[in-house]
Design a protein around this nucleic acid. Structure first.
Length: 477
DNA sequence: ATGTGC
């Protein structure tokens, strides 16, 4: 089966879950889209697969540019895209391949109680969370760093620094990707404006698709892995989805501009200005990697602080805040990783790291079963926990969510905030803190079906289903 | 995503 797009993209179906974009023109490698016929983006209306083809022209790109089943249009790179470059053969890093929200990701906390025991206190808990979680554009944060030393600590030390300063338990770090901090952060590469913006937002949720949800385990698909993860039916969980706020955004803006002018000097030409890039081993590439890692650490500290604020809210409203971290993982990041014999810069933008069983970067207790892959669905739709699998085909990556289907502009035309609130209430979901605009932009209608996306992810061999979580309360910006 | 737009 071959599908021709207007822009002459040629898609060849290889399996029920895998489609190839044939190499042509300036493409150095093919594209590979992991999806089903039902979820395949409409080539006449959607640019995301054309973006996959454009990314495949970048210097040093290897193997293939991959798209996850939740792929959709993004700045330069598609969201739900994975691209790796060979750093020892002129491979580039591109800020657009990480995205504006550097180290946006998900933390899942597990509570020590069954939903039946939470129900009578749910309203009180949601009120306490609404009180404890700063959210929305700009506005308030859990922690206001004193002077530059504390901000430096956050940029260099991420969640580890937050824990050192009393915001959480050392054991939390065992369940964080990179134990809570990327080692090669360079706070000196973070510009003054990014720092200014960062000072005001340490420990804040933000807006858009960021949220905090109280959920409960409703389905278990893999008993053994679920047991290792501690996911039993009815267990209350808290999912926190946020990133590096204005600081990461400013760093992306600064480096896109800087690389746009640097590309000529390196003899790089790209089909789209939004693919601005520089060799990883260049002044601009190196500075970006250091600043990006610092933003990633800021994002990890952010989720650590919000996790701690969640514990306090549980303490106040439920009487015990014995929340443990299942895992904390980024889905917007570029990392230098070894695959086979090569050192690659793997860009994951709207794609979750999914380490296989046995991987040395996993904590010993999770190593036998693989990394928890946290997949938030659209608002009110539920979320999934998957596990990384051996020999996965996209540099150990999986989907990161349901994936947008309608733009924010289109989304607000489909419903009203009042109607959405009523629908969530009818589904037994308590909503706190959501602005009318924010709520309507996030209508589930604007997203793909997370169940179908996760099934495609599993069918494609990217990850394995472990458990499904259903929301009972949501805090939004 | 974002002091939402050069």
């Amino acid at each position: 089966m071959v599908v021709k797009a207007a822009a002459s993209l040629e898609l060849v179906q290889e399996t029920p879950y895998r489609w190839r974009i044939e190499r042509q023109g300036a493409m150095r490698v093919p594209g590979v889209v992991f999806t089903t016929r039902e979820l395949l983006p409409d080539l006449s209306a959607d640019q995301s697969l054309a973006q996959v083809a454009a990314v495949a022209t970048l210097p040093g790109v290897v193997e293939a540019v991959y798209a996850m089943p939740d792929v959709h249009w993004g700045y330069g790179f598609p969201i739900g895209g994975v691209a790796a470059t060979d750093v020892d053969r002129g491979g580039v890093v591109s800020p657009g391949g990480v995205g504006f929200d550097i180290s946006c990701g998900v933390r899942l906390l597990l509570a020590g109680l069954h939903l039946d025991r939470l129900r009578p206190r749910l309203t009180a808990l949601m009120d306490a969370l609404a009180d404890a979680i700063p959210r929305g554009m700009g506005r308030g944060a859990v922690w206001r760093p004193r002077g530059t030393a504390e901000l430096e600590g956050i940029l260099a030390g991420g969640a580890r620094y937050a824990v050192e300063r009393g915001h959480g338990e050392p054991a939390d770090l065992d369940r964080c990707e990179d134990r809570g901090a990327l080692a090669d952060a360079d706070p000196g590469a973070v510009g003054a404006r990014a720092r200014e913006r960062g000072l005001e937002q340490v420990g804040s949720l933000g807006s858009g698709n960021h949220f905090l949800e109280v959920e409960a385990v409703t389905e278990v698909y893999d008993e053994r892995i679920a047991q290792t993860y501690g996911l039993w039916p009815g267990r209350v969980c808290v999912m926190i989805h946020t990133g590096s706020r204005g600081l990461g955004h400013q760093i992306c803006t600064d480096f896109v501009r800087r690389m746009e002018t640097a590309m000529d000097r390196y003899g790089i030409s790209v089909p789209d200005r939004q693919l601005a890039c520089a060799p990883v081993f260049s002044a601009e590439g190196g500075a970006y990697m250091g600043a990006m890692a610092a933003a990633a650490n800021y994002g990890r500290a952010n989720r650590q602080l919000l996790g701690q604020a969640t514990r306090h809210a549980f303490d106040r409203a439920v009487g015990h805040g014995d929340l443990t971290v299942l895992y904390d993982v980024s889905h917007n990041l570029a990392k230098i990783e070894t695959h086979g014999s090569r050192r690659l810069c793997v860009h994951r933008k709207g794609a979750t790291l999914a380490l296989p069983p046995g991987h040395e970067d996993l904590p010993p207790d999770l190593r036998p079963v693989g990394q928890p892959v946290l997949v938030p669905g659209s608002m009110g739709a539920g979320s999934y926990v998957l596990a990384g699998v051996p020999d996965s085909p996209a540099f150990a990556s999986a989907c990161h969510g349901a994936g947008r289907r309608l733009s924010r502009h289109q989304a607000v035309k489909t419903t009203t905030a009042a109607r959405l609130r009523a629908e969530l209430q009818a589904a037994g979901i308590v909503v706190r803190g959501a602005s009318a605009r924010g709520l309507t932009e996030e209508t589930p209608e604007a997203y793909k079906d997370v169940d179908a996306v996760v099934d495609a992810c599993e069918g494609a061999g990217l990850a394995r289903k472990v458990a499904r979580l259903a929301p009972v309360g949501v805090v939004k910006g």
